[in-house]
Design a protein around this nucleic acid. Structure first.
Lengths: 165, 165
DNA sequence: CAAAAGTTTCAGAAGTGATTGAAAATATTG
DNA sequence: CAATATTTTCAATCACTTCTGAAACTTTTG
């Protein structure tokens, strides 16, 4: 396999993976392209390489920057903006976890809190209250664990990994 | 809030959460409904409660059983099949992780392996090979860690949680 | 074994989210 | 400030996934 074939395959695979992770296909492909680019790319470069529209490129680059997965790089003497990807995988995973925690776990915790206000009697009500209590307990633990994880440095993962084996 | 309102809200929220987790909206709603039901429900019950079609109910119940999130319960003297949900949250999360690992991480590892066969010279090729190597290393660690996690019992999570705080 | 009860399948409909492309806005240059 | 380069926005379109509902199939019962 030559380099170009390899790159294409990687971009394709990273895009597919991303779409299961709350990162849209194109968003993940742009990230993949920047990961394997030996230098910063412009929006134009990205559009051409991935054969996507200007609007699509712009939207997804911005989303990637919001997530902290891509950074802007301004070259002196150049009017265009260039972009580079975060390449530390642990950092990438942490940033994705942070986003999903905010978008998914936190709203769920809020709802569970509200559901604690449910009143009623009988087996239905008792069972419901118990299930909600269990899930809330679990979710709070998960939330605290993920907080630690997101704050941790890259070595943390290595340490946990070592401890587990 | 009364019990019925609470249940509806919970089913709604669980469905929304699920759709970010590779569990389709309906699949998650059925799981939610079974979680808070004080006894096993039939396909018919589920269709009525969630106002979904027979086909939809059937497909998603089957998927939930495939994932190990729902079990069949046969009542003596009853012709219908009844269903109950796995209620241990740690078990639920483990089962979802196991599915996603199989569906996402493992194919990616396979592709990274293939990409190691890329040949070429120059900064492009060198950078590519390096990026692939880094990701492969990270993914293998993640894979091993998730294996342990999936095999671990419910107390493991509590222990890790305690260690982290 | 025929009727009844229950389950599964699947082609088309509906719904959802992503993408395009052209126009508007913004920034830079001489 | 006008001309030019670049980025952003957004309504319409497209692609993809999920859902419906009727028909086919399977199982159970008398």
């Amino acid at each position: 396999m030559n380099v170009q074939e390899g790159k294409d395959k990687f971009i394709q695979a990273w895009g597919a993976l991303g779409s299961n992770w709350g990162v849209s296909r194109t968003m993940a492909q742009i990230h993949a392209l920047l990961l394997i680019a030996p230098h910063a790319l412009s929006a134009e470069d990205i559009m051409e390489d991935l054969k996507i529209s200007r609007g699509n490129a712009n939207m997804n680059i911005r989303a990637l920057m919001d997530w902290g997965l891509v950074y802007k790089e301004l070259k002196t003497g150049e009017r265009k903006e260039f972009f580079i990807a975060e390449k530390d995988m642990w950092d990438v995973v942490k940033k994705i976890i942070a986003q999903r925690k905010k978008k998914e776990l936190e709203p769920m915790l809020k709802i569970l809190e509200e559901l604690s206000a449910v009143e009623g009697t009988g087996p239905d009500a008792e069972n419901f209250v118990q299930v909600v209590r269990d899930i809330k307990l679990f979710s709070n633990k998960a939330n605290a664990t993920l907080d630690k994880l997101v704050q941790s440095d890259s070595n943390w993962f290595v340490k946990v990994f070592m401890n587990m084996i």
